[in-house]
Design a protein around this nucleic acid. Structure first.
Lengths: 213, 213
DNA sequence: ATATAGTTAGAACAGGTGTTCTTTATATGT
DNA sequence: ACATATAAAGAACACCTGTTCTAACTATAT
């Protein structure tokens, strides 16, 4: 696919700016003056190219009927996720309740793009306390996005409660004949083997977010 | 403040639906037929009321110049970030250019909450290739959000290019008298010391995102 | 040079669109 | 009942705006 011309890139950027500043799309003549183009037909010409290449969509005969594609196609939005507690060694992770699901009832929330939650609704977040998860490449202060399930597919990362050790750990879970292999995210480290009835799956790890600054 | 009439609430809901479905605001006549209203002047009349009460804002004489207020107070929104390349051992990270800043010109983008970018504009993303960053608690496939700067404050995490070793590494940077201390994110690991003119600051790390499933 | 595709210019048309005016209807308060 | 404010109807106007047409101008390749 051919690259966009300088003018076409300028038009897209202008539409974007105009849209977020004013809240409605620009008319062709807005684009004309805003990008210093000599004729409306030139704008029309380049808009058609942009439409054919999938950058915008236009509604014929509709004034300001331009929309930017590929960018927030409405399906993309912010999903509020409740931060319901801590994840730390020595204590099982908090179990989400109908109450803590409620974004309004929880003191702390974060917003994540729906890209990440992908429509899954039963998602909550935990703040990591301490360095006990470094073998999972998770640092003190990181936020772990969890989904409340009590079984996971082989190879998925889960919050695992080890009954005997009284520890919660984040590992990839593989069920093998009569034991469970817990594989650290850091593939250079050795796996851990646990008895079937020594492990409780407490949730599935969806994502890890570390805000540095 | 008086309550909105049934018709006015219907109008607002219609504008909202129309906007998210089509990507551009409705015309007065769109609202008229969409809400089953008998005259454009009635729509105009009610829109003026809605504007006076702060529900919408209108641009006089501008077709479809309606915007919904009070919704997404601009404080929280999704910011598109271009993913401009890879970060891997043995090669410096790609330098963002005016071209790669342009979200429209880049093949891959991700959306992050403005919570994370906090208004900073010159932010880009890199995908981590390989396991060379495990000492920074960063895994193969993670995405690193960067800000293009060539100097950082003491203690900030930066992408550091080591000239002699021909390696890029992510470390907390501390300038000490005549050398630079590079502290791994994993505080259980030992710091590295480097000569002042052996290091290039290539960018500041804003956040790390690891999507597991 | 010649041909071809890509791009630009200017003008004009037809319909969309916000606005305004007058008249009538409905509600609200005294 | 009366006065007043609020709401609605319908029509008409003037400008906005997408579209289209023709002509000219580049650039590139043959």
């Amino acid at each position: 696919m051919k690259k966009l011309s300088d003018k076409q890139r300028r038009i897209i950027r202008f539409i974007d700016r105009f849209l977020s500043e004013k809240g409605y799309p620009p008319s062709i003549r807005d684009i004309q003056t805003g990008c210093g183009i000599s004729s409306t037909s030139v704008v029309d010409y380049n808009l058609n190219i942009l439409e054919n290449r999938g950058y915008i969509s236009r509604r014929a005969e509709v004034s300001r009927g331009i929309r930017l594609l590929n960018r927030t196609p409405t399906s993309e939005s912010l999903v509020p996720v409740p931060i319901i507690g801590l994840i730390a060694a020595g204590a099982p992770i908090p179990v989400p309740t109908p109450d803590t699901w409620d974004v309004a009832a929880v003191s702390e929330t974060m917003s994540v793009p729906s890209e990440i939650t992908r429509g899954r609704e039963d998602i909550y977040a935990l703040r990591v306390k301490g360095m006990s998860m470094v073998d999972a490449l998770i640092n003190d202060g990181d936020i772990v996005l969890m989904q409340h399930v009590n079984a996971v597919e082989n190879g998925e990362m889960a919050a695992v409660w080890l009954r005997a050790e009284k520890e919660v750990t984040l590992k990839k879970v593989y069920v093998e004949s009569n034991r469970i292999r817990l594989q650290p995210a850091n593939s250079q480290m050795q796996p851990l083997y646990a008895d079937l009835d020594n492990v409780d799956i407490q949730g599935r790890v969806i994502a890890v977010v570390r805000q540095v600054v």
